[in-house]
Protein backbone atom coordinates (compact mmCIF):
# COMPACT_ATOMS: atom_id res chain seq x y z
CA UNK A 1 0.00 0.00 0.00
CA UNK A 2 1.38 3.45 -0.80
CA UNK A 3 0.60 6.84 0.60
CA UNK A 4 -0.27 8.11 -2.84
CA UNK A 5 -3.99 8.47 -3.47
CA UNK A 6 -5.19 6.88 -6.71
CA UNK A 7 -6.36 9.25 -9.41
CA UNK A 8 -10.11 9.76 -9.40
CA UNK A 9 -11.46 7.68 -12.29
CA UNK A 10 -13.31 9.71 -14.91
CA UNK A 11 -17.04 9.67 -14.51
CA UNK A 12 -19.31 8.45 -17.32
CA UNK A 13 -20.46 12.01 -17.87
CA UNK A 14 -16.90 13.17 -18.42
CA UNK A 15 -16.10 10.54 -21.03
CA UNK A 16 -16.29 11.59 -24.65
CA UNK A 17 -17.62 8.86 -26.96
CA UNK A 18 -16.44 9.22 -30.53
CA UNK A 19 -19.31 8.56 -32.88
CA UNK A 20 -19.75 8.38 -36.60
CA UNK A 21 -22.82 8.80 -38.77
CA UNK A 22 -24.40 8.30 -42.16
CA UNK A 23 -27.28 10.13 -43.75
CA UNK A 24 -29.89 8.41 -45.87
CA UNK A 25 -32.02 10.69 -48.01
CA UNK A 26 -35.77 10.55 -48.44
CA UNK A 27 -37.88 12.26 -51.05
CA UNK A 28 -40.70 14.32 -49.64
CA UNK A 29 -42.60 14.05 -52.92
CA UNK A 30 -42.64 17.85 -53.21
CA UNK A 31 -41.14 19.09 -56.47
CA UNK A 32 -41.52 22.50 -58.03
CA UNK A 33 -40.53 24.61 -61.00
CA UNK A 34 -42.01 27.90 -59.82
CA UNK A 35 -40.87 30.31 -57.14
CA UNK A 36 -44.35 30.96 -55.80
CA UNK A 37 -45.01 27.26 -55.48
CA UNK A 38 -41.58 26.83 -53.89
CA UNK A 39 -42.49 29.33 -51.14
CA UNK A 40 -45.81 27.55 -50.59
CA UNK A 41 -44.13 24.14 -50.34
CA UNK A 42 -41.42 25.53 -48.08
CA UNK A 43 -44.05 26.86 -45.66
CA UNK A 44 -45.34 23.34 -45.06
CA UNK A 45 -42.22 21.25 -45.45
CA UNK A 46 -40.72 19.24 -42.58
CA UNK A 47 -37.94 21.13 -40.74
CA UNK A 48 -35.72 18.09 -41.47
CA UNK A 49 -35.89 19.06 -45.13
CA UNK A 50 -34.77 22.65 -44.49
CA UNK A 51 -31.92 21.28 -42.38
CA UNK A 52 -30.97 18.86 -45.16
CA UNK A 53 -30.85 21.58 -47.82
CA UNK A 54 -28.56 23.73 -45.67
CA UNK A 55 -26.23 21.11 -44.21
CA UNK A 56 -26.70 17.83 -46.12
CA UNK A 57 -24.47 19.09 -48.93
CA UNK A 58 -21.44 18.82 -46.65
CA UNK A 59 -21.69 15.03 -46.78
CA UNK A 60 -22.24 14.92 -50.53
CA UNK A 61 -19.32 14.32 -52.87
CA UNK A 62 -18.09 17.22 -54.94
CA UNK A 63 -15.04 18.31 -56.90
CA UNK A 64 -15.37 22.05 -56.67
CA UNK A 65 -16.13 24.60 -53.99
CA UNK A 66 -19.86 25.05 -53.72
CA UNK A 67 -20.93 28.28 -55.37
CA UNK A 68 -23.69 28.69 -52.79
CA UNK A 69 -23.83 27.08 -49.39
CA UNK A 70 -27.43 25.98 -49.52
CA UNK A 71 -29.54 24.19 -52.13
CA UNK A 72 -32.23 26.89 -52.19
CA UNK A 73 -29.81 29.59 -53.33
CA UNK A 74 -28.27 27.25 -55.91
CA UNK A 75 -31.68 26.43 -57.39
CA UNK A 76 -32.75 30.08 -57.55
CA UNK A 77 -29.51 30.88 -59.40
CA UNK A 78 -29.40 27.91 -61.79
CA UNK A 79 -33.08 26.99 -62.07
CA UNK A 80 -34.90 30.31 -61.75
CA UNK A 81 -31.88 32.34 -62.94
CA UNK A 82 -32.39 35.17 -60.47
CA UNK A 83 -29.03 36.34 -59.14
CA UNK A 84 -30.52 38.82 -56.68
CA UNK A 85 -32.56 36.35 -54.67
CA UNK A 86 -29.84 33.71 -54.99
CA UNK A 87 -27.35 36.01 -53.26
CA UNK A 88 -29.83 36.94 -50.56
CA UNK A 89 -30.57 33.28 -49.84
CA UNK A 90 -26.89 32.36 -49.94
CA UNK A 91 -26.17 34.97 -47.28
CA UNK A 92 -28.42 33.19 -44.79
CA UNK A 93 -26.27 31.49 -42.18
CA UNK A 94 -28.26 28.84 -40.32
CA UNK A 95 -25.94 29.08 -37.31
CA UNK A 96 -27.28 32.58 -36.62
CA UNK A 97 -30.88 31.38 -36.29
CA UNK A 98 -31.97 30.03 -32.93
CA UNK A 99 -34.25 27.51 -34.62
CA UNK A 100 -35.19 26.27 -38.06
CA UNK A 101 -38.70 27.77 -37.93
CA UNK A 102 -37.19 31.25 -37.86
CA UNK A 103 -34.89 30.33 -40.72
CA UNK A 104 -37.88 29.03 -42.69
CA UNK A 105 -39.74 32.30 -42.10
CA UNK A 106 -36.75 34.35 -43.22
CA UNK A 107 -36.50 32.39 -46.50
CA UNK A 108 -40.21 32.84 -47.16
CA UNK A 109 -39.95 36.58 -46.42
CA UNK A 110 -37.03 36.95 -48.84
CA UNK A 111 -38.87 35.05 -51.59
CA UNK A 112 -42.08 37.04 -51.08
CA UNK A 113 -40.21 40.35 -51.13
CA UNK A 114 -38.45 39.38 -54.32
CA UNK A 115 -41.73 38.27 -55.93
CA UNK A 116 -43.12 41.72 -55.15
CA UNK A 117 -40.06 43.42 -56.68
CA UNK A 118 -39.86 41.38 -59.88
CA UNK A 119 -43.27 40.52 -61.17
CA UNK A 120 -42.05 38.16 -63.90
CA UNK A 121 -40.74 35.79 -61.25
CA UNK A 122 -44.30 34.95 -60.28
CA UNK A 123 -44.79 33.06 -63.53
CA UNK A 124 -41.20 32.22 -64.54
CA UNK A 125 -40.72 28.47 -64.96
CA UNK A 126 -37.44 27.09 -63.66
CA UNK A 127 -35.17 25.26 -66.08
CA UNK A 128 -34.45 22.74 -63.33
CA UNK A 129 -36.91 21.23 -60.92
CA UNK A 130 -36.40 21.73 -57.18
CA UNK A 131 -36.94 18.56 -55.19
CA UNK A 132 -37.45 18.82 -51.44
CA UNK A 133 -35.47 16.10 -49.73
CA UNK A 134 -35.06 15.22 -46.06
CA UNK A 135 -32.72 12.81 -44.40
CA UNK A 136 -32.49 10.29 -41.60
CA UNK A 137 -29.27 10.17 -39.66
CA UNK A 138 -27.86 6.89 -38.40
CA UNK A 139 -25.38 7.28 -35.58
CA UNK A 140 -22.70 4.66 -34.91
CA UNK A 141 -20.65 4.24 -31.77
CA UNK A 142 -17.01 3.72 -32.76
CA UNK A 143 -16.30 2.27 -29.32
CA UNK A 144 -13.59 4.86 -28.68
CA UNK A 145 -13.92 6.84 -25.47
CA UNK A 146 -11.71 9.72 -24.37
CA UNK A 147 -11.07 10.83 -20.83
CA UNK A 148 -9.26 14.14 -21.35
CA UNK A 149 -9.31 16.79 -24.11
CA UNK A 150 -5.57 16.15 -24.61
CA UNK A 151 -6.49 12.76 -26.05
CA UNK A 152 -8.78 14.42 -28.56
CA UNK A 153 -5.78 16.29 -29.92
CA UNK A 154 -4.22 12.94 -30.78
CA UNK A 155 -7.40 11.51 -32.30
CA UNK A 156 -8.68 14.48 -34.29
CA UNK A 157 -6.68 13.88 -37.48
CA UNK A 158 -7.94 10.31 -37.75
CA UNK A 159 -11.63 11.12 -37.36
CA UNK A 160 -13.69 10.45 -40.50
CA UNK A 161 -15.37 13.42 -42.14
CA UNK A 162 -18.76 11.94 -41.22
CA UNK A 163 -17.63 11.84 -37.60
CA UNK A 164 -16.69 15.52 -37.89
CA UNK A 165 -20.17 16.12 -39.32
CA UNK A 166 -21.78 14.39 -36.34
CA UNK A 167 -19.75 16.11 -33.63
CA UNK A 168 -19.36 19.55 -35.18
CA UNK A 169 -22.43 20.10 -37.37
CA UNK A 170 -25.20 17.78 -36.24
CA UNK A 171 -24.40 18.63 -32.61
CA UNK A 172 -25.73 22.12 -33.14
CA UNK A 173 -29.27 20.81 -33.17
CA UNK A 174 -28.69 18.46 -30.21
CA UNK A 175 -26.73 20.41 -27.61
CA UNK A 176 -28.47 22.76 -25.21
CA UNK A 177 -26.32 25.79 -26.12
CA UNK A 178 -26.36 25.07 -29.88
CA UNK A 179 -22.59 24.60 -30.11
CA UNK A 180 -20.63 21.49 -31.10
CA UNK A 181 -19.98 18.35 -29.02
CA UNK A 182 -16.32 19.25 -28.39
CA UNK A 183 -17.26 22.62 -26.93
CA UNK A 184 -19.94 20.96 -24.83
CA UNK A 185 -17.47 18.43 -23.49
CA UNK A 186 -14.85 21.05 -22.63
CA UNK A 187 -17.47 22.93 -20.60
CA UNK A 188 -17.87 19.86 -18.39
CA UNK A 189 -14.32 20.41 -17.06
CA UNK A 190 -15.24 23.80 -15.58
CA UNK A 191 -13.05 26.70 -16.66
CA UNK A 192 -9.95 24.56 -17.30
CA UNK A 193 -10.23 24.66 -21.08
CA UNK A 194 -12.08 27.95 -21.48
CA UNK A 195 -9.65 29.47 -24.01
CA UNK A 196 -9.82 26.42 -26.25
CA UNK A 197 -13.58 26.38 -25.86
CA UNK A 198 -13.90 29.99 -26.95
CA UNK A 199 -11.72 29.37 -29.97
CA UNK A 200 -13.80 26.36 -30.95
CA UNK A 201 -16.94 28.48 -30.76
CA UNK A 202 -15.18 30.95 -33.04
CA UNK A 203 -14.81 28.42 -35.88
CA UNK A 204 -17.40 29.15 -38.56
CA UNK A 205 -18.44 25.78 -40.00
CA UNK A 206 -20.51 27.21 -42.84
CA UNK A 207 -17.84 27.91 -45.42
CA UNK A 208 -15.57 24.90 -45.10
CA UNK A 209 -15.74 21.39 -46.38
CA UNK A 210 -15.67 18.72 -43.70
CA UNK A 211 -12.03 17.90 -44.39
CA UNK A 212 -11.12 21.59 -44.12
CA UNK A 213 -13.00 21.76 -40.84
CA UNK A 214 -11.06 18.76 -39.60
CA UNK A 215 -7.79 20.47 -40.53
CA UNK A 216 -8.86 23.59 -38.63
CA UNK A 217 -9.70 21.50 -35.59
CA UNK A 218 -6.42 19.60 -35.80
CA UNK A 219 -4.50 22.89 -35.92
CA UNK A 220 -6.42 24.32 -32.98
CA UNK A 221 -5.94 21.27 -30.77
CA UNK A 222 -2.28 20.96 -31.79
CA UNK A 223 -1.65 24.54 -30.75
CA UNK A 224 -3.26 23.95 -27.39
CA UNK A 225 -1.67 20.61 -26.73
CA UNK A 226 1.71 20.75 -28.51
CA UNK A 227 3.09 17.97 -26.29
CA UNK A 228 0.44 15.56 -27.57
CA UNK A 229 0.69 16.33 -31.25
CA UNK A 230 4.47 16.60 -31.48
Amino acid sequence: MTDQQPETPPTETNLFSIKDCALVALATGKKTRQLKEFAKDLAGIDTASIYHHFWGGLLQPRFEEREYNNDFAAWVRHGIHDGVLAEQLAALDPTTFPDIELLRQEIIDLVDTRLDEAEYLAWARATQQFEFIRSQIVVFDTGKQLQKPEELAGEMASLSTSSIFYHFIDARRRTSDGYDDFTDWLASFGGEYETLREQLIGIDPYFSSLSELREQLVRLFSTHFPEVSS
Binding site: A22, V24, Q136, I137, V138, V139, F140, D141
Partner: peptide, 21 residues
Protein backbone atom coordinates in the same frame (compact mmCIF):
# COMPACT_ATOMS: atom_id res chain seq x y z
CA UNK B 1 -25.54 0.32 -45.63
CA UNK B 2 -28.51 2.32 -46.91
CA UNK B 3 -30.75 -0.75 -47.20
CA UNK B 4 -29.83 -1.74 -43.64
CA UNK B 5 -30.48 1.83 -42.51
CA UNK B 6 -33.92 1.70 -44.07
CA UNK B 7 -34.65 -1.58 -42.30
CA UNK B 8 -33.39 -0.32 -38.94
CA UNK B 9 -35.36 2.88 -39.43
CA UNK B 10 -38.53 0.84 -39.91
CA UNK B 11 -37.80 -1.19 -36.81
CA UNK B 12 -37.31 2.08 -34.92
CA UNK B 13 -40.55 3.59 -36.18
CA UNK B 14 -38.91 5.46 -39.06
CA UNK B 15 -37.52 8.24 -36.85
CA UNK B 16 -35.22 10.90 -38.25
CA UNK B 17 -32.44 9.93 -35.84
CA UNK B 18 -31.36 6.35 -35.29
CA UNK B 19 -28.64 5.45 -32.80
CA UNK B 20 -27.03 2.04 -33.13
CA UNK B 21 -24.63 0.60 -30.55
Amino acid sequence: REYLTLMVAHLSGAQDRIEVK
